[in-house]
Design a protein around this nucleic acid. Structure first.
Length: 226
DNA sequence: GCGACAG
DNA sequence: ATCTTGTCGC
C-alpha cells in the first residue's frame, strides 16, 4: 500500500517533540460509512541483541478472522525506547512492511496508544497519518490518564481522563482479565474503536488482529535470516 | 526534586 | 520489547 512520507525519521528527541505537536492537529475524528470487512493488526519484535526490529502486518476478514494477507519488514533500530516516543522507534519498520501490503484494510488495530498520549500523538495516530486509513490504539497498559477500574465482566468500560477530557476507554475484553486501553488513532471515533476491539476479542484478551500479528512476528523473529 | 513511564 | 517452567486459577 501507498504511504505518505510526512517527514524524516532520522531526528533527535527534541525534534520529535516538535513533530508530535505539529502532527497532532492533523489527526481526524470520524465515523465509518460502510460495514467493516477487513481489519489489520500490526506488531513488532526485536532481535536478541536489540539491533534489529521486525514489523509484521496481518489482514484478517472481519467475518471469520481468517488471515487474508501477511507481510513483514526488518530494519535497523535507530531510536531508543523512550516513553512517549514509541512511534519513532517502531513506525519506520511498520511502514516498510505496510508498503508491501497489497490488500487495503478498512481499519487497523495498533499495539499502543492513539490520542491517549501526552501530546495526543501516540503510535496509532502517527501511523494513521502516514497510511491514511482508520487506526485504533489498543494498548495493554496505560501511558497517561486517570480512570476507575471497569467492571470485571467482558464489555465493561470506564473513561480514561486527562486534563478534564476523555482521551480513551479502559476496556475489559474478557471476564476477569487486565483491561485494555483503547483510544482513537486516526479517522475513527472512540465509540467505534471500542466496539471494533470488543468484536475482535472472541477467545483471548487481545483482539484477533493484534494477537495474530504478535504471534506471527514472534515466529518470524526466529526463522529469519538477519 | 519526586514519581510515572505505550513497547 | 526481552530473559523463561511450572504453576495457580477460572
Amino acid at each position: 500500500m501507498q504511504i505518505k512520507k510526512l517527514h524524516s525519521w532520522d531526528i533527535s528527541v527534541k525534534e520529535a517533540v516538535k513533530l508530535q505537536r505539529g502532527l497532532s492537529p492533523k489527526v481526524k475524528m470520524q465515523g465509518f460509512n460502510k460495514k467493516i470487512k477487513t481489519i489489520a493488526g500490526i506488531d513488532c519484535a526485536f532481535r536478541a541483541d536489540g539491533e534489529k526490529i521486525i514489523a509484521c502486518v496481518v489482514v484478517l476478514a472481519a467475518e471469520n478472522f481468517d488471515v487474508i494477507e501477511t507481510v513483514y519488514a526488518v530494519r535497523g533500530v535507530k531510536f531508543p525506547y523512550i516513553s512517549g516516543f514509541l512511534s519513532f522507534r517502531e513506525a519506520p519498520a511498520c511502514l516498510a512492511a505496510w508498503e508491501k501490503l497489497k490488500t487495503r484494510p478498512d481499519c487497523v488495530i495498533v499495539d499502543g496508544q492513539g490520542i491517549a498520549h501526552p501530546r495526543r500523538l501516540g503510535l496509532a495516530c502517527h501511523l494513521g497519518l502516514f497510511i491514511d486509513i482508520p487506526t485504533i490504539g489498543c494498548a495493554k497498559s496505560r501511558l497517561i490518564g486517570d480512570f476507575t477500574e471497569p467492571g470485571l465482566a467482558k464489555g465493561s468500560t470506564s473513561a480514561l481522563i486527562n486534563k478534564g477530557k476523555t482521551i480513551g476507554s479502559v476496556v475489559r475484553s474478557r471476564d476477569n482479565v487486565k483491561p485494555l486501553f483503547v483510544s482513537v488513532g486516526h479517522k475513527c471515533r472512540l465509540s467505534d474503536a471500542v466496539r471494533i476491539v470488543l468484536d475482535c476479542c472472541v477467545k483471548y484478551r487481545l483482539p484477533e488482529p493484534s494477537r495474530i500479528a504478535h504471534q506471527t512476528v514472534t515466529k518470524l523473529k526466529l526463522k529469519i535470516e538477519y
